[in-house]
Simulated scan of single mutants.
Amino acid sequence: MTNIEFSQPGKTYILVHGAWHGAWCWDKVTPLLQARGHKAIATELPGHGGDIERTSDLSLDDYVNAVVTTANDQNGPVILVGHSMAGIVISQTAEKLGPEKVLSLIYIDAFLPRDGESLFALVEATLKHLTPDSRKPTLVENIIPSEDHTTNTVNPEMAAQIFYHDCSEEDQKFALARILKEPIVPLATPVRLTDDVYGVIPKYFILCTESRDMDKTFLSTNMPCKKVYKLASSHSPFFSMPDKLVDVLSGIE
């Protein structure tokens, strides 16, 4: 596991990337948080970034244990930030670490689960809650499974439109060159969460209102959140508007 770390006084943010991505997606965010006196750690989930030796056999526990280890390496409490798929990861991580270690959970256009829900179940629920006025989701129809159905990828011809339509051409090229396959098992695994642990940790949702992958409005209501913020961004505000994203992140206790 590779971590990008900035040691400064202030709050400690652990940033967890979504499916097909890596710690690289936080490259603009970490120095901005550092400049505000915080500590920012962009965690590389197993099977992503430079760790691609084993992908098809990875589990949700592998993801969670990587974030738990990173969190326990820090002195004091942490704020867990999850983008997209990583909403599942930070939720299960928070259940394992407890409210003494996790100050809050921040979901960036992410999957916000209740006990017993998997990412796949949340996708199905979200699709059912779309209204005629909802933005048409494009991600589901552009996911390509591997022949053995252990991993999947995003249609490379559509990835820029789905994830980065408001990002610079430079950022689009940077991201498209790094997107990898994603193991299926973590996406299909239900989380195990309790009211006494996960339920008491404050939750915040950052809804990207211009996201083209899938309208997350329903997901922002799936669990009680202390506040739902809105950014007029694609699914990738860490590229398109990192300053505004950090304004929100740094304002959350």
Rank of each mutant, 00 (worst) to 15 (best):
E157D: 12
H149E: 15
S84P: 07
S104M: 09
A121T: 10
V140E: 14
E147W: 04
S56Q: 07
V81H: 11
S134G: 07
I88V: 13
V123I: 15
G49F: 13
Y107M: 10
E95N: 07
D57H: 06
V89R: 07
H48C: 14
H83C: 11
E100A: 10
L119I: 00
T131C: 11
I88M: 15
S59C: 03
Q92W: 03
S146P: 07
K96C: 05
A125N: 15
D62F: 01
N72E: 15
P145H: 07
D115N: 15
D115G: 08
I88S: 08
N65A: 10
K136S: 09
I106T: 13
I106E: 11
K136F: 11
G98M: 04
V154R: 00
L80P: 04
G49R: 10
Y107C: 10
H83K: 08
K128L: 12
R54V: 11
K101A: 01
V140G: 09
A159V: 09
G50W: 12
I90V: 12
E147I: 05
Y164K: 03
H165F: 08
P99H: 03
I162N: 00
S118R: 05
R135E: 12
T55E: 08
E95S: 06
A94T: 08
I52K: 14
K128A: 15
P46T: 11
R114M: 10
H165A: 08
R114E: 13
V68I: 14
P46H: 12
V64H: 00
Y63R: 09
S134W: 09
T70M: 03
L105N: 06
G87Y: 10
G82M: 10
T126Q: 14
A86N: 04
Q74R: 05
D73V: 02
P113R: 13
G76D: 12
